[in-house]
Simulated assay, not measured.
Amino acid sequence: MNRAAVRAVVHRYISRLLESRDDFDDSTSLAQLGLDKEDIEELIFHMEDELNVTAFTAEEDRMLKSVRTVNDLSRFLLEIGRH
């Protein structure tokens, strides 16, 4: 799993959740996009399925507390993909 593939999945799922809202970049705040904790949880579950990776509950909890940007989601998925 490479960074470009993960980034593409993250952007695709966020765009789908936002119903094709304007473009955004990796440094865009998830709060600016209007995503709340439940939205982020949903994104994580879908992206884990798409990328065939699984995070432990403690990892997901940690991520939910620390994720702020689109890039944070990509980094998290890359991190759990290394397990």
Rank of each mutant, 00 (worst) to 15 (best):
V9N: 07
H46F: 07
V53H: 03
D49N: 08
D39N: 12
R68C: 11
M63D: 15
E50D: 02
V6H: 03
S20F: 12
D22L: 12
D72Q: 01
R7F: 14
A58M: 14
M1A: 01
E60S: 09
R3C: 00
L64V: 14
S66F: 05
D26T: 01
A31M: 15
D26P: 01
A55K: 03
N71F: 07
M47L: 09
R75I: 09
A58F: 13
D72W: 04
L43Y: 08
S27V: 03
L43C: 04
Y13R: 10
R7W: 05
N71V: 04
D61P: 11
V53D: 07
R7H: 13
L33M: 02
H83V: 05
S74D: 08
S20R: 15
F24W: 00
E42G: 15
L64M: 13
K65R: 15
R21G: 10
H83R: 14
E50S: 07
D26W: 02
N52W: 11
E41M: 11
L51D: 00
A5D: 09
I80Q: 01
H11S: 10
S15R: 14
I40Y: 08
E38A: 10
M47V: 06
S15F: 11
L51F: 01
E79V: 04
F56C: 11
K65P: 13
V10F: 06
E48R: 02
R62L: 15
A8Q: 09
L64T: 04
I44D: 07
S20L: 15
L77I: 00
N71M: 10
N52R: 11
A31D: 12
G81Y: 01
R16L: 15
T57N: 09
V67T: 03
R68Q: 09
T28M: 09
L77R: 01
R82G: 12
S29P: 02
V10Q: 00
I14P: 05
F56E: 09
E59K: 03
H83T: 12
A31I: 13
L43Q: 03
S29V: 02
F24S: 00
V70W: 02
A4W: 05
I14W: 06
M47Y: 02
Q32H: 11
D61Y: 14
R82P: 07
E42I: 14
A55I: 04
E60I: 13
S29M: 08
D23L: 10
Y13H: 12
L17H: 12
Q32F: 11
R12I: 06
G34Y: 01
V6Q: 01
R16C: 09
I80A: 07
R68Y: 08
L73F: 05
A31N: 12
G81A: 01
L43N: 03
A4D: 05
F45M: 10
G34I: 05
N2M: 01
E59W: 08
D22Y: 05
R21V: 06
D49C: 13
V9T: 04
L18I: 00
R62I: 14
I44F: 06
S66N: 11
S29F: 00
L64I: 10
L43M: 05
E19M: 15
V10G: 03
D26H: 01
A5F: 03
M1F: 00
E79Y: 10
D39P: 12
E41D: 15
G34T: 07
A31R: 15
L30P: 04
A8T: 10
R3A: 05
A31E: 14
T28R: 04
E48K: 00
